[in-house]
Computed example of a mutant assay.
Amino acid sequence: MKYLTIFSLLAFITLFSSSCDNDFNINDDWADITVVYGLLDPAADTNWIRVQRAYLGEAAASASYGEPDSVYYDTTAISVYLEAYSRGADGSLGTPVNTIFLKPDFTSRKLDDGIYSTDDFRLYRTTETIEEDKTYKLVVEKSNAKHPEASSITEIVGIQQSSNSGFRFVLPNPNVIAARTFNGNLKWYQSDQAEIYEVDVYFYYKEVNRQTGAVEHLVQKLDYTTIEGAQIPADPFETIDVDGSPNNIYTLLASNLPELKPNTLRFFKSFTVIIWAGGEDLAKYIDLNRPTEGVNNSKPEFPDIENGTGLFSSRTSIMLDEVAMSQQMATTYYLSSTLCEKGFAIVTSGDTCYCERIPGIGPERVCD
């Protein structure tokens, strides 16, 4: 028994020591991997594409944070351009009808200081028109023939080329100023190629100090709603309807507004409503980057960029500003239970009226 114990111990030591002699390399072979982020907008005067590179080294990743050539290509090492195609009847691309070379821009956009180097940061831009009825291919061509070019293709989310004569507001009514009011309900015609819509509502208001009379003009952005997937009607001629209510707005305001300053009243000025329409790959990208629920945390790979990673898609937007509250909402919003402590007021018949919560009674109108 003693000999067996000694033999087992020697065998364990031999096995352990021999395994320590085998180095395990956790790094893969180096490869040139392009990182691309870009959303083409046919309504924009300038379109921007971010082109960088992934890096890999034997040292810790932090050893390369401060090295510009770890994350940025030299401008002589790549050419970045867009090829425009008119798809054939069978959906094929054929040959490009236009090529747009993007210019590196070092000054228009600045990065905040952080752990990564901001030296040599650049974007690639073009001011040429992005045509809504074309398909665009982004190409990042390398001067080193051993490094494969990166590319990606997107359709264009348009405003004018929609099947129903345009991506446009129906409600609020954009054509009649008196009818340009918002009470939570929205309606718009769809955009071709759009697979996701996001609605941003900007709430403009002013704060008045009751003691000094000082006025401050402010704005609060409200992430109003997202429409995607089965929520989008299959018929492109059908409008998208958002059945909201004043309470939706009140709840968003109550949770987003900063704390009310002492001796201050707030007065509503106007809304601005912006509807963003995004392409198919943008919708997929947003969906894949949402928090995973359930036991299975694995996510499918997002195969948007050939020989690279990132996102290349399209988006556009429509905007309606100087939007008023509906008449009923404008005279009662400050008295809602949700907003009573938020300091909103209205001026009526020369009096300033605001809300106070009376114990045992609830929100009450007070005028002085």
Rank of each mutant, 00 (worst) to 15 (best):
L4S: 06
V36D: 07
Q52M: 05
L15Y: 14
T34V: 12
R50A: 04
D29H: 06
L40M: 09
D21M: 06
F7P: 01
T46H: 00
T5K: 12
L15N: 05
L4Q: 05
L40T: 03
I49P: 08
V35C: 06
L10T: 03
L39K: 12
Q52G: 12
R53L: 08
F12L: 15
I49Q: 07
Y37P: 00
I33N: 11
L15E: 03
T5E: 11
I26F: 11
W30I: 11
T5P: 00
L40V: 07
T46P: 00
S8P: 00
T14H: 02
S18F: 04
Q52P: 00
I6K: 08
S19T: 14
L56G: 06
R50F: 12
T34C: 07
Q52H: 00
T5L: 14
G57C: 06
S18H: 02
Y37N: 10
D29E: 14
F7G: 03
G38A: 15
N22Y: 15
N22R: 14
A43K: 12
S19C: 15
I26H: 10
L4F: 07
I49C: 09
Y55R: 05
Y55V: 03
D29G: 02
R50T: 02
I26N: 04
W48H: 07
I26A: 10
D28E: 12
W30S: 12
Q52F: 00
L10M: 13
D23K: 13
I33S: 09
F7E: 03
Y55P: 02
L10Y: 03
D28Y: 05
D21A: 08
L15M: 10
F24G: 01
I33Y: 04
S17C: 04
D21Y: 06
W30H: 11
T14Q: 07
S19Q: 15
I33E: 12
S18A: 02
L56Y: 04
D45A: 11
L4V: 09
L4I: 13
D45W: 02
D45S: 14
I49M: 13
N47Q: 03
G57E: 07
R53V: 11
G38L: 08
D29P: 05
A44T: 02
I49S: 09
T46A: 03
T46K: 06
V51P: 08
I33W: 01
T14C: 10
G38W: 09
Y37E: 05
D28G: 08
P42L: 05
D21V: 07
I26R: 08
N22E: 15
V36P: 05
A43Y: 04
L9K: 01
D45F: 08
